[in-house]
């Protein structure tokens, strides 16, 4: 009787062990696969993107076209395109104001003029946008085209998008200023007030570290500052929507409307000759 009982116990134990061995073997196989895939992640991803890039471009253009069409339907005809045109014009004007103000500021004249001339002397590399995931944009140019990590990326009207985050041979990933890991030094146009734009994800950001005593207002325009030199000075970033002031805190925050628009960003420009000077 006890022999039969022992047999069942051993059989049960063997069955359990078999299951455990299977699970362990599975985990080891997975770990090995992850290890191999991550060792060759650069060529694997590059090959994958190179293969997908033409299809992605088609989808991107189709998405852009259909969303614009849908928006124009919802916005009653020409309202949307007119709005877009006005926005572009506005950004163009703001860009010119930014440059003019930089030149105008007396005590910083020297550095500002050099920044302004630097802005006009940028070597720009045009790239096509092919995808977006978690505030990381994919573009169809990479190290083979002269792109390197940390290079600033702008739109047509000197609007800042972000910087090159990862470079593969034929494509690159851009960390947008709205990415949760992104912190950008900015200043309020026409004033001496400095702060930082922190990404909050989902293509949104907020302004932080503005001294509580500083006077900021809705519609104040934010441009890149020269504090950390990650970006050239004077690039357009966004405008203040609403300030959040708490007298018990040393700094005030503000919600920000970023100027970049993913939906209309078919082509972006990588500044390939900007040298970060520490």
């Amino acid at each position: 009787m006890s022999g039969i009982k022992n047999f069942y116990i051993v059989a049960g134990w063997r069955k359990k062990n078999k299951g455990l061995i299977k699970i362990l073997a599975g985990i080891i196989v997975f770990l090995f696969l992850f290890f191999v895939l991550n060792i060759f992640v650069l060529p694997v991803k590059n090959y994958f993107y190179a293969l997908s890039s033409p299809i992605q471009k088609v989808f991107w253009t189709a998405g852009d076209g259909s969303s614009t069409f849908l928006a124009s339907l919802l916005n009653a005809g020409s309202l949307n395109s007119e709005n877009e045109k006005l926005k572009k014009e506005n950004q163009n004007l703001l860009s010119q104001i930014a440059l003019l103000q930089l030149i105008k500021q007396g005590n910083q004249a020297q550095s500002d003029v050099s920044a302004a001339s630097q802005n006009t002397g940028f070597k720009l590399l045009m790239t096509g946008v092919i995808g977006l995931d978690n505030d990381i944009l994919s573009i169809n140019k990479g190290s083979a085209d002269g792109i390197a990590e940390g290079m600033p990326v702008i739109g047509q009207q000197n609007v800042l998008f972000g910087k090159v985050f990862k470079v593969y041979k034929n494509f690159s990933q851009i960390m947008l200023i709205s990415n949760k890991n992104s912190v950008t030094n900015v200043e309020i146009l026409g004033s001496e007030i400095d702060g930082v734009i922190k990404g909050s994800g989902g293509l949104a950001s907020y302004l932080d570290l503005i001294p509580i005593s500083s006077d900021i207002n809705p519609q104040d325009v934010l441009v890149t500052s020269s504090i950390d030199k990650s970006f050239p000075k004077g690039l357009l970033v966004g405008e203040i929507v609403q300030k959040q002031k708490n007298d018990q805190e040393p700094f005030q925050k503000a919600s920000v409307n970023l100027f970049f628009n993913i939906k209309t960003a078919d082509n972006l420009f990588v500044i390939t000759n900007y040298k970060r000077t520490d």
Partner: peptide
Amino acid sequence: LLQNSFFIHFN
């Protein structure tokens, strides 16, 4: 491809 390139315009 669709979620990264097409539906991103409908976020």
